[in-house]
Write a protein that binds this DNA or RNA. Sequence first.
DNA 1: AGAGTCATGTAAGCTGTTACATGATTCG
DNA 2: CGAATCATGTAACAGCTTACATGACTCT
Lengths: 189, 189
Amino acid sequence: MALRHAVPATLLDGEYSGYQPAKTFDVVVANFWHAPPQQLYAELTELEKEGLVAGRQVVQETRPDKRLFHVTDSGRAELKEFTAAVSKPSFIRDDLLVKVQVADRLGTAPVIEQLEERASAAEAKIELLGKLLRQLRGDADEEEFLRRGERIGSYLTCLRGLAFEQGHRDWCLRIATVLRERRTTHAER
Amino acid sequence: MALRHAVPATLLDGEYSGYQPAKTFDVVVANFWHAPPQQLYAELTELEKEGLVAGRQVVQETRPDKRLFHVTDSGRAELKEFTAAVSKPSFIRDDLLVKVQVADRLGTAPVIEQLEERASAAEAKIELLGKLLRQLRGDADEEEFLRRGERIGSYLTCLRGLAFEQGHRDWCLRIATVLRERRTTHAER
DNA sequence: AGAGTCATGTAAGCTGTTACATGATTCG
DNA sequence: CGAATCATGTAACAGCTTACATGACTCT
């Protein structure tokens, strides 16, 4: 289970509705996660049924009413258990890798194009994460913040996200160059 | 669909049974993918039904008979289509990130332990991939191989796997250090 | 004799994605 | 006035994981 724990983990930092995190889930909560609202509503409903989170109705005049959720004691306990349990190593699972794998056989042109698109998407995310990190650490420099900051969880996971995007960008650009240069020397197909 | 294309991609390099790749799927085919044999059998059966791959029975004396699969023309065509279609960006989805996110609230000890375990697992994989890369490029150096080599698909995906594992290791070690050093200054809980 | 490997599958279940649906309010 | 945003859900489906099952051969 993944969202099952990712959602309460988010909620530790405060109350959220189902809608809020859905918008920012890519970046703020989990610079690493992504989930459409539907999934969050479903998960929150399930978690509430099990008593791991609790919601309270907030009436809004101009906007539709919403429900803000927080983690219950029982939810905290389960999160703590989850934290202690071992989990399996992660791995990349990316269609683009499959495409690169077969590019020299089935045609490089569309793959090169996608590699370059990915690289600029990664670049954009790198900048976004850079800003977010600066914002999170405020005036302090990184070392300082990590030593004395109160809540560093988000910062640490952002760092992973940043490194991932940088690695992704670098690889995309490298591979695009390699494939491009081969086009002059290797016949396609 | 992911395995749906990853499997034929593998099969482009030669014939395989369901069993063979299952063992090496972590490393050889897709230094990035991982799938248990059950899934491969299921996928191969499905792909065969749709005519994208074809199998031939190989009788073995000492071992149980097996079926070797290869990609059909129709399978190649679909792969090529897949290669041209755009796919969504990838992201990390790792329980460990969730744990790090909440570590400063719910207890750092078990998380530090897991970070260090992960780091050494990543280290092991880095060495494995290094060996594989050396083996794939033979006598040539990397630049040379990437320019003139016949089939570089696996090499390129391995490079991504390698960079990913290095990033993973570095992050794990860094975060473990950060959390460890905070333990002397921050009370837990 | 028992453990491990080669070889193949079925069946159930968990997670996550996508499409569909609703309805008020705000912004240009 | 139309598009976007806030806000919440249902239903169907696709994909992956896990448990279970079988059976022969090889190595210690």
